[in-house]
Design a binder for these strands. Structure first.
Length: 574
RNA sequence: GCGCCUGUAGCUCAGUUGGAUAGAGCAACGGACUUCUAAUCCGUGGGUCAGGGGUUCGAAUCCCUUCAGGCGCACCA
């Protein structure tokens, strides 16, 4: 499951205003506990780890602390009593804490001086396009490998989900201060390529008028026929009388290039660009697969049985061992994948993230076992497993099969739904949940689609700023305004939400959960729309108009940065 | 049979390290446009968090168990 980067060393990051506030509260509580003990009012050995959290209920203040409940047992007092004692010893000088009160079973609720929020716009303005970024990653090298679809066909819905998820995860990690590399692993070796060659050959001969059977488990897709037609347009009958082996090799070479170019192009249309395209075949050619197996062998993790070489996966908690070299001497996909991941570690990545379909989950733990066998920390490898996409049309489940060529491609999805809606839709759900993609709904482009709601907030702001400019009112800097006139609850709520953004990004990045972004996006857009309804921005009074323009401006920056992380446009007009 | 994921409002889903009266969108119903874009806002109704047991100040969350669905358990990838 999505990891938490625990194997990495994370630096304390004080760029986040909200975290500073939380730190103030935590420190004040620790000090209060210390003073209470000195005064003999409380007995305890050590201050337990407590949380500073935002209560669900607004009436419970801005932040709440559960320390009293955790201390109750040690102190042999009831939690509320402990809480009263802590509050009595609380010193809030030098903090934004305005009030602390005991509530419920022993919570201490903190209400802040709301003026802390007026610091927010200057921070957003100052950071601009990087607002929301942080340094937790401390420049450590991270690799995100995603899609890695077989180059024997077109991209389907599952690949599309992987593309949207992987790209957003990479963007998030980059924003969190990691040095991120996006990588596509090209499965250009193994049985499927052999199969691919046979399919190409059969189509070639058929198109040239020969009556030959098509391999039953071949690739039936129409796109293969088109690829072969393209080849014929180039070379004509040149391969007609070749031996099967060189003929297939020649066809594969051409078709692979065409297929990969197609994949690259459609992914670029989808807004995804890779840093590295890594060939599986290159691992065989360079001898890395053999070297990896030799390394495992030397370490005593390999044995021979029935003429094949086996990896002792059971020594790493697996239920059964795995073949790495077949009886016929050909290494398995698993062997190549071990070599691939070894290669990743050798390239210096501190954190390796793979986005895989749930149908590969059996592969995860043995892969980690193999990494452990090679002496790498398996915790540095995180696999985001995404559940498969089910496609619905007309209320019915569409069965998809790449083998039979019956599936909706990413090309078609982009044409019908558009990049923004598709990417938002895929990222909206956690990778863990099955995704039911209703084509009719997505096609309808109705207001049901939440991406429009968020984009509309951005367009509205752009419109306001445009009209302000036409009236001769440039967007002022936060420092030029007295922001304390922003006192409407909708204004304060909006500022509060904007202040949260950096922590949302950081949390989503470390948890590898981009769906937190769309949730936040929905909330931020709602608060803007409420503000828009309740507070007119373009009022005659400059001392009110200026601050509201500032607020609109920083909302716009936050929305744009947010949508950028998902790969969705932030339009100025809709 | 074993393993992984899922089960939360009519539907699609959030719910962070265990916190207070479980949320959002859509759908339904009722309101708000001589005012910066109504692709918006406000309000109402809607729950046995699949069932059962346990852990504790406190459980949708952790543990056990039953049920239901998905996926995996190849000398395929």
């Amino acid at each position: 499951m999505p990891g938490d980067g625990k194997s990495l060393q994370l630096g304390a990051d004080m760029m986040h205003l909200v975290r500073v506030i939380e730190g103030q509260i935590a420190d004040a509580m620790k000090n209060a506990a210390g003073r209470a003990r000195e005064a003999g009012d409380l007995q305890f050995a050590k201050v337990p780890d407590f949380v500073v959290e935002v209560p669900r209920e607004k009436a419970h203040g801005d932040f709440a602390v559960n320390l009293a409940m955790l201390l109750a047992r040690q102190a042999r007092q009831n939690p509320r009593q402990v809480a009263e004692t802590l509050v009595r010893h609380l010193d809030t000088t030098g903090t934004w804490i305005a009030r602390a009160e005991v509530a419920g079973p022993g919570f201490i609720n903190f209400t802040l001086d709301h003026r802390w929020l007026y610091q927010v716009p200057a921070i957003v303005e100052g950071q601009g396009k990087t607002y929301g970024h942080s340094e937790v990653g401390r420049g450590q090298k991270v690799q995100v490998e995603f899609v890695s679809a077989n180059p024997t066909g077109l991209l389907h819905m599952g690949n599309a989900r992987g593309a949207a998820l992987g790209d957003s995860i990479a963007s998030l990690l980059s924003a969190a201060g990691f040095d991120v590399s996006r990588e596509f692993y090209i499965n250009d070796a193994g049985n499927q390529i052999v199969n691919f060659g046979k399919s190409l050959e059969a189509r070639y001969l058929q198109l040239m008028g020969r009556n030959v059977p098509f391999p039953e488990d071949g690739y039936h897709g129409q796109d293969i026929v088109e690829t072969v037609q393209n080849i014929i347009n180039l070379v004509g009958d040149r391969y007609l009388d070749w031996e099967p082996e060189p003929r297939q090799a020649a066809l594969i070479k051409y078709a692979l290039k065409e297929k990969l170019d197609g994949i690259r192009t459609v992914l670029e249309h989808f807004g995804v660009r890779y840093d590295v395209w890594f060939s599986e075949q290159s691992l065989h050619d360079s001898g890395e697969v053999a070297a990896t197996i030799a390394e495992l062998q030397e370490a005593g993790h390999i044995y021979e049985r029935d003429g094949a070489l086996w990896f002792k996966a059971t020594a790493f908690g697996e239920e059964k061992d795995e073949v790495v070299v077949r009886q016929n001497g050909v290494p398995t996909y698993f062997a190549a994948d071990i070599a691939y991941h070894r290669n990743k570690f050798q390239r210096g990545f501190r954190w390796i993230i793979n986005v895989w379909g749930a149908d590969h989950h059996g592969h995860v733990s043995r892969m980690k076992g193999a990494m452990a066998a090679l002496g790498y920390d398996p915790k540095s490898l995180d696999v985001v497993l995404m559940q498969l996409v089910r496609l619905f049309q007309g209320g019915e489940l569409l069965r998809m099969s790449k083998r039979t060529g019956q599936y909706i491609t990413l090309n078609e999805l982009i044409e019908e739904v558009g990049v923004d809606a598709a990417r938002y839709f895929f990222v909206m759900r956690s990778a863990d949940s099955h995704l039911d993609f209703d084509l009719d709904l997505a096609k309808s482009q109705s207001a049901d689609n939440p991406v429009y709601y968020v984009q509309y907030a951005h367009a509205r702001i752009a419109s306001i700023l445009r009209q302000a400019a036409e009236m001769g009112h440039q967007l002022p800097a936060a420092s030029e305004c007295d922001l304390t006139v922003l006192t409407d609850p909708s204004e304060l709520d909006l500022l509060r939400k904007i202040a949260d953004f950096p922590l949302v990004v950081e949390g989503a990045a470390l948890a590898l959960e981009p769906h937190r972004l769309t949730r936040y996006a929905q909330e931020l857009a709602t608060l803007f729309h409420v503000f828009y309804t309740n507070c007119r921005v373009l009022v005659p009074e400059e001392e009110l108009r200026g601050p509201r323009l500032v607020l609109a401006g920083v909302t716009r920056i936050t929305l744009a940065n947010l949508l950028g992380l998902i790969g969705v446009q932030a339009p100025d007009r809709m």
